[in-house]
């Protein structure tokens, strides 16, 4: 195998990959929404947050009251790097501005038993752009497959 041939084989996947990453990450500014104040009371128990999914808009002023109902729990919001811990019954409060858009997981930060590493919830700020783009990309990928010339000449 010669080098140019090798490059020509790799060229398509690399081009596709670049386009896919661009399509998924290119910034797209959405019309801003009117910021509002959002209040959530999250009850944490082994090994669940209730509610487990929070939905806000970018710019919203978010207040989260964390109440543990069995043992000591905590909360750590990915990317926002906010954290708090709460003893049972004692409300712990997090206040922040939702200035990063996207979907973020929040996780328990205080070891609370067996499934502690998997105790998590989701904070969605604005529409989940990545997911919507991923759906479009999947459809585009499938169309690409269909649009191709016949793939096989063998019959079985």
């Amino acid at each position: 195998m010669t080098l140019p041939k090798f490059i020509s084989i790799l060229a398509k996947p690399i081009l596709g990959l670049t386009l896919a990453v661009l399509a998924l990450t290119a910034p797209l500014s959405l019309p801003p929404t009117q910021p509002v104040e959002r209040y959530f009371r999250i009850e944490a128990s082994q090994f669940a947050y209730s509610p487990g999914v929070l939905q806000v808009n970018p710019g919203d002023q978010v207040t989260i009251d964390l109440v543990a109902t069995d043992v000591v729990h905590g909360i750590y919001i990915d990317n926002y790097e906010l954290q708090a811990s709460a003893d049972p019954g004692q409300t712990a409060r997090l206040t922040f501005t939702a200035d990063q858009a996207g979907l973020f997981r929040f996780r328990c930060l205080v070891p609370c038993g067996q499934l502690h590493p998997f105790m998590l919830g989701k904070l969605q700020v604005g529409p989940n752009q990545l997911f919507l783009r991923a759906v479009l990309l999947s459809l585009a990928g499938l169309l690409l497959v269909l649009w191709k010339k016949p793939l096989s000449t063998i019959s079985i």
Partner: peptide, 18 residues
């Protein structure tokens, strides 16, 4: 990681689709 996961899953779809 979310972007990597998406690319992997779409790759799987295209490969399986083909």
């Amino acid at each position: 990681t979310p972007v990597i996961e998406t690319v992997l899953l779409v790759t799987g779809l295209i490969w399986s689709g083909r």
